[in-house]
Design a binder for these strands. Structure first.
Lengths: 110, 110
DNA sequence: ATCGTTAATCGTAGATAGACGATTTATGGA
DNA sequence: TCCATAAATCGTCTATCTACGATTAACGAT
């Protein structure tokens, strides 16, 4: 048995072409990090479903303390995926379409 | 000024429809977590570009200690995105196509 | 059977996440 | 002006990540 089968993961090799040479690992990792927690994914999906949402509603929709939700929102804001706009004593959150598209683009380009 | 403009994030409301009611936050968060570090994104992109790759090559391609790369690989394996196959004293890694598709699907469905 | 190579695991240290309650800040209304 | 509400920040705790060197385990080859 010379060379030994060497299936090694069955390597499909179906014309894959390293879609975008350097995937900008930093950028994608930053976005991924933002949605790397179930609570943040849920917040994001709520915002996507409603187009926009007041912070208090998010707190009510989550089984977490107000301060905790606020921290998750901060992380989402830091990633750029979400933006907040002060509306009187409340704060209205929404998804930043450009950043959100960019995230999808980066994942799709993988 | 009654009612006060209330732009609030300019709510585009372009027929968005909450693509998949409950996005399975846990599942997406798990995948996102796996690629929430630049080193892991890079490993993943290397594997995608080469179809498969021996661990040692990955270590050489990264500016990290062998043990650190091994840990990142472990995290990627735990997420299901990557699988390893023992090939003699070496280990050959590759992307799990099904899981990888699932990740893309989940993100695209957001 | 022993040796060399490859990769996983162990053990450690420092940094950061995640959760909460308590407090502060900001705004609108009385 | 003072009060009530909303949300951010602070302080604390525990748990986990990240990185590394050192060690162990697995395998081929001699």
């Amino acid at each position: 048995m010379a060379a030994k089968a060497k299936t090694c993961c069955e390597a499909p090799m179906e014309g894959r072409m390293a879609s975008s040479a350097s995937v900008n690992a930093e950028e994608l990792a930053k976005f991924a990090w933002a949605i790397a927690h179930p609570a943040r994914v849920k917040i994001l999906s709520i915002l996507l479903a409603r187009s926009n949402c007041v912070c208090g509603e998010l707190v009510d929709a989550m089984p977490l303390a107000q301060s905790t939700v606020s921290q998750h929102l901060k992380i989402l804001k830091e990633s750029g995926l979400v933006q907040g706009e002060v509306d009187g004593p409340k704060v209205c959150y929404c998804v930043n379409p450009a950043m959100f598209s960019r995230l999808k683009e980066l994942v799709a380009a993988l």
